[in-house]
Design a protein around this nucleic acid. Sequence first.
DNA 1: AACGCGCGCAACCGCACATGT
DNA 2: AACATGTGCGGTTGCGCGCGT
Length: 305
Amino acid sequence: MDVDQYLLRGYTSSVTHELPSCDPEDDLRKGPWTVEEDSILMEYINTHGEGRWNSLAGNSGLKRSGKSCRLRWLNYLRPNVRRGNITLQEQLLILQLHSRWGNRWSKIAEYLPGRTDNEIKNYWRTRVQKQAKQLNCDVNSKQFQDAMRYVWIPRLMERIRASSDSTVLSGQPTETATSTAFTPPDDYCLTDHSNTAAAGSSHYWIDPNYLPEASATSSGSTELQDWLNIPEPTSTELSELNCYPMNGQYYSSTNGSGCYQDGSEIQGSDHIESSNSWSTPGGDLVENLWNEENIWFLQQQLNSD
DNA sequence: AACGCGCGCAACCGCACATGT
DNA sequence: AACATGTGCGGTTGCGCGCGT
C-alpha cells in the first residue's frame, strides 16, 4: 500500500498512525473517486455491462469494493443521472410520495427519473427535516404533516402555477414548466388547467390524496383553491390547526384575525404579496421554500394546539 | 487574512433479503 | 437445509465549500 492509498483509507489524520493490517480488505481504497477510477469503471461497464459488482471490482483493476463500484455507478456515473436543482415539481412529488411511503427512498426515486434515492434522501434530510427542526416538531408528527398539507404543498403548487404562467407570458420555457417527464404512480391524476383564466398551459401530476372529493368541488371553495385542487380541510382539521380559510390560504387565529410577530394585523393582501414574491421568474429553484414569515406563521399554528 | 461554523452531498456502513451452490 | 455470495436499502458520517465574524 503506497502512502496515497494509505492516506485515503481515512479522511482524518488521526488514523494515519495506525499500522496497515494484513486484512485484504484494507487494500481497498475508500473515499472520493478519482477521474481515473471513474473512467476505468465506465469503460469496464461499457464493455461488460453492469452487475456482478464484486467480480467487476476484482477484474477491472480498481482497488474498490463491489459495493463502492455499484454506488459510484448508480449515483454518479450512470447515464441520465441528474444532480442538483431539484425542481419545484420534484419537490412537490417528494413531499407527496414521502407522505405516502415514508422513507422508502428507492421507491420514491422510481417516480423521479434521473434522481437517485441517495439524492432524494439528502434533500429530505437537509431541507425538510431542517424545517421541522425550526418548527420544533417531529417531521413525522401530525402537526408537521398538517403544515405540509395545508401550507407547504399548496404554496408549492402556487409557485409551480406562477412559474407556468411566466412561461406562457414570456414564451421562455423554464425548468419547472418542462419537467413533466416523470412517471407517476398509477393512481396519480394529470391536472389540466388550460381552460382556466389564470393558468395557461399548466399540467402536473398530483397525488389523488390531495384532490378534492367529488362533493368538495361545490361552491364552498375559492377559485384558487379549485385550481390548486386542494381538498377543503374538514372542520375538525381546521379546528385542530386553529386556522380559517381566506383568499385560498389558511390563516391561524385565536381571535378572528392573525397578526405578525410585531403585533400588527395580518392583511389578506400581505399574504398575496408574499406569495407573489415567491414566484419571481428566474428565482433560485432550490431556494429555501419557507421564509421567516412562513416559519412564524406555522409556529403560531403549532403553538395553538 | 484567518478562523470557526453550518450546510450540502458523496460515500460508507450495517443489515436484510435474494440467489446460487 | 445450510451456508456463501451478491445485491439493495436506509441510516450515518465526514469532507469540502461558502459564509459570517
